[in-house]
């Protein structure tokens, strides 16, 4: 069977060449000192920054998948999610209905009215939970999580950890989670890779 994600010889100006494999349902944590290129690694895989090397999703080469399709399947979620319209609903696909997302609103501890909320009045915890939910709606096969809980309190952090775990269990998706919180490392479990001198080490 093809690997879920297979990265070979990935190289940017500041990073690599490095290899990385991810199995279905697997969560791999990425750590490393600040400035070591953790975000750059995720951005390169999401194809937001130019890079060399091959990246395959279930055996299919990235270059053969249209950029928009690629980024829907390989979802990059930054530490601070971006919002551009006035209310939450405008940031979700047109014609989308909460029922379609099953119980995701509930699992993120968000009420159904949350869709009508104004962006200006969201707390950082609500923003991140809604931002992750928004990414889930594309049914990505890979989650690239760039310190998604960096500015959150413990309660919100744990909500997000649980939601990601249950998403992976249900959809057989994989995740790369950048974090430098050692307590979180213990809670999340799974393989931990560190970026050191442009390379990934176990």
């Amino acid at each position: 069977m093809d690997r879920l994600l297979d990265v070979r010889g990935l190289q940017t100006a500041q990073l690599g060449p490095l290899d990385l494999q991810l199995q279905a349902g697997e969560l791999v944590q990425i750590t490393g000192p600040s400035g070591s290129g953790k975000s750059l690694l995720l951005r390169a895989i999401a194809d937001l920054d130019p890079s060399r090397g091959t990246v395959r999703l279930l055996g299919r080469d990235r270059e053969r998948i249209a950029p928009t399709d690629w980024r829907r399947q390989v979802a990059y979620v930054p530490a601070e999610t971006a919002w551009w319209a006035e209310t939450v609903r405008e940031h979700f696909p047109a014609g989308w209905h909460p029922d379609q997302a099953g119980s995701w609103l509930e699992r993120f501890s968000l009420p159904e009215e949350a869709l009508g909320w104004e962006i200006e009045r969201l707390s950082s915890g609500e923003r991140q939970r809604l931002g992750l939910l928004r990414a889930f709606l594309n049914r990505p096969r890979i989650l690239l999580l760039d310190e998604p809980t960096a500015n959150l309190d413990l309660e919100n952090t744990r909500r997000i950890e649980r939601a990601v775990r249950s998403y992976l269990a249900e959809t057989e998706a994989g995740a790369l989670w950048v974090s430098h919180d050692t307590l979180q490392r213990g809670r999340l479990g799974g393989r931990v890779l560190e970026i050191r001198d442009r390379r990934l080490v176990a």
Partner: peptide, 22 residues
């Protein structure tokens, strides 16, 4: 100024045309 929003929209699978329309 809006590069974060543009990249955020690209990351969600929007086309560059859509992400820069405004």
């Amino acid at each position: 100024r809006e590069r974060r929003v543009i990249e955020g929209r690209l990351a969600l699978g929007d086309s560059w045309l859509c992400a820069t329309s405004t």
